[in-house]
Amino acid sequence: MKRIALLAGALALMTGCGGSNDAPSAPAGSVKAAAAPAGQDWTQTVSPTPEGGYVMGNPNAAIKLVEYGSRLCPTCGAFANTGMRPLIENYVKPGKVSYEFREFLVHGAPDFPPALLGRCGGAQPFFPLLEEMFAAQPTVLPKMEDAGAFQQAQQGKAPGQIFTAWAEKLGFIDFVKQRGIPEAQARACLTDEKQIEALTKYMDAGTEKGVQGTPTFFLNGNKLDNVVTWDGVEGALKNAGA
């Protein structure tokens, strides 16, 4: 739990987000659409991954997009608000692209509550909650203005207590209650030591892969340097043949 305590005290607030937007070049191709299971579309195919993310779409898609993101990162929010719908409608639903989101907690303690609560309901609500948390940033982020003083007041508390306090401050317990996760379940998720430890390890693994800020995208295992917007990501998808 020592590593968790260090993360809980970290407040690199908003500095890990963003970057420039130079889409990489890649050979053009033509990936064919693939039919989803009968009576479904590929957005209903969602599962956890060994790397700690959740993936949506055709598991055999020729193009695999992975995002390392923070639910409190404004640049991630801008990507979600402009790109999530076209990504799903134009690339995931046809079965050409699978999309995986992995938590990368660049802001330390404040990032844990939305990440823990976003995973609290399991696979099916994961992406709807993710999209709605990004859409809610304009009401959530102003509550971070006194983050340093608030975090200082949490010193000496257990990680679960700290994350619960942040969840209450940022309004995330009520947020998930309104979306079908009971309060008792939400509070249990915020203090789940196994999940807290797992998120810490997943972030360490991302750092080892070269992730330094959010959002960071990988396409078929290759890092998309300096690509942080939907235009950049879509350009890379098209270059890959989507």
Rank of each mutant, 00 (worst) to 15 (best):
E51S: 10
E51P: 09
G52R: 06
G52H: 03
G53M: 02
G53Y: 04
G53T: 02
G53N: 05
G53E: 09
Y54W: 05
Y54R: 06
V55E: 07
M56Y: 04
M56G: 05
M56A: 07
G57L: 04
N58W: 03
N58R: 06
N58Q: 03
P59I: 14
P59T: 14
P59A: 15
P59L: 15
N60F: 10
N60T: 13
A61E: 05
A62Y: 12
A62F: 12
I63F: 09
I63H: 07
I63W: 07
K64V: 15
K64M: 13
V66Y: 10
V66H: 10
E67W: 03
E67I: 01
Y68N: 13
Y68T: 08
Y68H: 09
G69C: 11
G69Q: 00
G69N: 05
G69I: 07
S70T: 10
S70F: 06
S70H: 08
R71E: 15
R71A: 12
L72P: 08
C73D: 01
P74C: 13
T75L: 12
T75P: 07
C76Y: 06
G77E: 06
G77L: 10
G77N: 02
A78G: 04
A78D: 05
F79H: 02
A80W: 00
N81K: 09
N81Y: 01
N81Q: 14
T82S: 11
G83S: 00
G83T: 00
M84A: 00
M84P: 04
R85T: 12
R85I: 09
R85F: 13
P86L: 08
P86D: 02
L87A: 01
L87R: 06
I88Y: 02
